[in-house]
């Protein structure tokens, strides 16, 4: 008996202390968080109060997270804007339900980032018919009648800009070779990015794309696929990686294989990638943005729409019907301007 209880006591204590330790280990708070970039919005004075409903997918990776944060922060800058943001969902049915709820609440403007653009077209149409203008963010509805204004990134342009950037760097090198680490092939945006990249490279006859592998936007897959690419290609001059999140893994693989002597360009614009570009101590020299700041623009446009105004800097009395953000290439020369936009 005493034997057992002593053992029990030992295991009990160990389990409790392990539990206490683990509970203390869930925190991701940085010790010295620098003050957030909170400059006042360069915009006109408070006007008519506007309630903006925001429905997005589940923020399960950095970029979507940044979308939500940007929307929230932008709304906070205006005293006349109330943001009604739903719990994100990747389930089409659940997102339709959330949009219905926002319609019933009679918000003034809806900003919708659909989990699946085509599948949520009906929800957009319903809101428009109920007299609530819809700003369709990033993933476009199948029917233009389902939105008043579309705000999104340019996946094709992202590929084009990556291709041209690499092309300009390698244009004087005869027989240059390029490899591509793409996102998941199951997504349309991956095809668009690859198409843009190929089309831009076609401008440079001296450059040949010799290999392409698809990772799936995760660090783990980025590491695995990059390790294979490095094994397959003993020498190449440039690499375009579609996504900075998987790029963390790709950089690990490059580091582990001890490889350098080529130019790496990333995609999306994560903070970790921007930090690496600024530090300039790895093969990563540039990244092509797919800016989550589009969520801030969507809030600006929604506010203007709600107040019946145009956008300052544009002559129109109304906001435009479509806004496609430019996928800028960020490298050492302009990194300081873009660093605050980097997302983690």
């Amino acid at each position: 008996m005493p034997e057992t209880s002593r053992r029990g006591l030992l295991f009990g204590t160990a389990a409790i202390s392990a539990g206490a330790f683990l509970t203390a280990c869930t925190s991701n708070e940085k010790k010295d968080e620098p003050a957030a970039n909170d400059e006042p919005a360069a915009d006109d004075k408070p006007g008519k109060p506007v309630t903006i409903g925001f429905a997005g997918p589940q923020a399960d990776h950095g970029w979507l997270n940044a979308i939500n944060d940007n929307a929230r922060n932008q709304a906070k800058k205006y005293s006349d804007v109330t943001l009604d943001i739903t719990e994100g969902s990747n389930d089409t049915a659940a997102q339709i339900g959330q949009i219905d709820a926002l319609i019933n609440k009679k918000v003034d403007v809806l900003v919708i980032l659909p989990a699946d653009g085509k599948a949520l077209t009906q929800a957009g149409l319903k809101a428009m018919r109920a007299g609530i203008p819809v700003i369709n963010l990033d993933r476009i509805f199948a029917d233009p009648q389902a939105f008043r204004c579309y705000v999104g990134g340019d996946n094709y342009g992202m590929g084009v800009n990556a291709g041209n950037y690499i092309g300009e760097k390698l244009k004087d090198k005869a027989g240059a070779t390029v490899i591509e680490l793409s996102g998941p092939d199951s997504l349309e945006l991956t095809k668009q990015r690859t198409q843009g990249f190929d089309d831009a490279l076609a401008n440079y006859p001296n450059i040949k794309k010799v290999a392409r592998q698809a990772a799936d936007f995760t660090v783990e897959s980025g590491q695995a696929k990059m390790a294979q690419l490095l094994q397959a290609q003993s020498k190449f001059d440039a690499l375009w990686n579609h996504d900075d999140d998987q790029g963390v893994g790709a950089l690990r693989a490059i580091d582990q294989a001890g490889r350098d002597g080529f130019l790496m360009v990333g995609g999306a614009g994560a903070k970790s990638a921007m930090d690496a570009i600024k530090a300039d101590n790895s093969v990563l020299k540039a990244t092509v943005l797919y800016p989550p700041i589009m969520a801030s623009s969507a809030i600006d446009l929604a506010r203007a729409l709600g107040q019946g105004k145009g956008v300052s800097g544009m002559a129109g009395l109304e906001i435009p019907a479509q806004v496609t953000l430019f996928s800028a290439v960020v490298d050492k020369t302009n990194i300081d301007e873009y660093l605050p936009q980097g997302f983690s």
Binding site: D60, H61, D216, F217, T218, V219, E220, S221, G222, Q223, D245, V248, G249, R252, Q256
Partner: peptide, 14 residues
Amino acid sequence: LIVLSGSGQNTNGN
């Protein structure tokens, strides 16, 4: 996996 990928992500182990 932490050692190999140098990171932790909720999509790990897919």
